[in-house]
Design a protein around this nucleic acid. Structure first.
Lengths: 104, 104
DNA sequence: TTGATACGCAGGTAAATACCTGCATGTCAA
DNA sequence: TTGACATGCAGGTATTTACCTGCGTATCAA
């Protein structure tokens, strides 16, 4: 998988906001997404392109419009394959850290 | 919380690798982490600084050494406050996407 | 003290990133 | 067909980022 693309895509506040917007209302057009964002349309296009490239957003053309949909799968996969590894060790690591900070 | 710092920190493969290394063996020194990374020590220092700034890594000095420990809390918080929102809607979103791709 | 070790700090460069403006293309509705 | 609308494409700039080299400081062991 393209873990790197997904993480890089999530590393920008504008793009996380875009995902938030799509979470509230899935299938929005570029224009609709722009209205909230105080940024030139072309910039939003770029951000959406990066999200699409990371498979976090899928698009469908409908006439002259382009609808944007969240694809939650990569996010889930990132969580499953990457975050949970740390989760599993969470309490252990916290214990070690606490010990160390207390001078062992 | 500084969601942005956490995501930005995770947006670099070298830094994710550093977390991986610390996950395998917590409490490593800068020197030990460098050995695996084919990169100048100073570069690794910068990456570790970013991780530390995002609270993903905590450090403890021991003599002339500096030990690095994973702090899994921000990762967990990011998951709780951000990823789960999408998880909750995952099946719904997938259903909508499928419908749309099939021409509704 | 002295040499070796472990790290910190101050820059400097090349590439990536996040914006933008300007113009072109395609689609709808009258 | 024509004007308004929705988006695409080309490129340009300013900032951020990732990497480096060079040198300084602190610690340990002999």
């Amino acid at each position: 998988m393209h873990t790197d693309k997904v993480f890089k895509a999530l590393g920008d506040p504008t793009r996380r906001k875009l995902l938030d917007l799509l979470c509230e209302k899935n299938g929005q057009t570029l224009g609709a997404l722009c209205e909230t964002l105080d940024m030139a349309r072309q910039s939003v296009t770029q951000h959406l392109g990066i999200l699409e490239d990371a498979d976090l957003v899928s698009t469908v053309r409908r006439g002259r419009e382009k609808l944007h949909f969240i694809n939650p799968v990569p996010l889930h996969e990132v969580y499953e394959r990457w975050v949970r590894k740390f989760e599993r060790q969470r309490l252990t690591l916290l214990y070690e850290l606490k010990k160390e900070l207390e001078g062992e």
